[in-house]
Design a protein around this nucleic acid. Structure first.
Lengths: 107, 107
DNA sequence: ATTTAATATTGCAATATTACGATAAAGATT
DNA sequence: AATCTTTATCGTAATATTGCAATATTAAAT
């Protein structure tokens, strides 16, 4: 095996898991945190910031983009990346809702 | 390769990524959501609920536990699992903080 | 038109993850 | 004590992820 059985879970569960999974790597956390700091930047900036090779950064950016966490707009030669606020809000809502539901419960 | 270069990121980044990563799988999302619904339960209940074999569920529970997202207390023969509120709050805070920082920015 | 700059893609090796059957471990039940 | 119940662990196959060198792509600059 090795393949996640996505067909056995709801679309919503798969969708939120995909989004969360994209953030479940320190390099991608670091990219997001760097983007928070600088607002927008190009791939090369991140390559200079993090100890990973350019293709690796490019791959991580692709994953973040596929998950909807960042947006990239072509700016002549380079691509200007930034965080998609809506995605972060979605995650915030998800965990906020869980917290709310847990308040009433005890364990 | 295939091994994450954890040594190149901060402890905080690695720690939050580990926690988030643990939730980045639909089965574990489903387990957490089931736990929210029933408050506490034993492994067997989850095995009955989800379309995965017992060893697979046990493995997912282990990962959630290692990440600090759930707690398990021995209850005679079985183990009573429940969500660790503090962990969820930590995640909520993390995304809440990001949202806050993003409010001031535009992209 | 050539060269330079910035990203993406390809191909590949190393490692990690997912899933499950078989089995072990440990307390409960008879 | 023997059996049942519940969960964990081991072993293993299939697949996915991570990381990078080499190369391709695309636009800018000369």
């Amino acid at each position: 095996m090795g393949a996640t059985k996505t067909d056995h879970f709801t679309d919503r569960q798969n969708s939120i898991a995909t989004m969360i999974k994209a953030l479940g790597h320190p390099a991608r956390i670091a990219i997001i945190e760097y983007l928070i700091k600088v607002d927008t930047c190009i791939c090369g900036d991140i390559v200079n910031e993090l100890p990973l090779a350019q293709p690796t950064i490019s791959q991580h950016l692709k994953e973040l983009k596929n998950a909807g966490l960042i947006k990239g707009s072509i700016e002549g030669n380079s691509i200007c990346y930034c965080i998609d606020k809506k995605a972060i809000e979605k995650l915030q809502d998800y965990f906020g809702n869980i917290s709310l539901k847990l308040e009433k419960k005890n364990c």
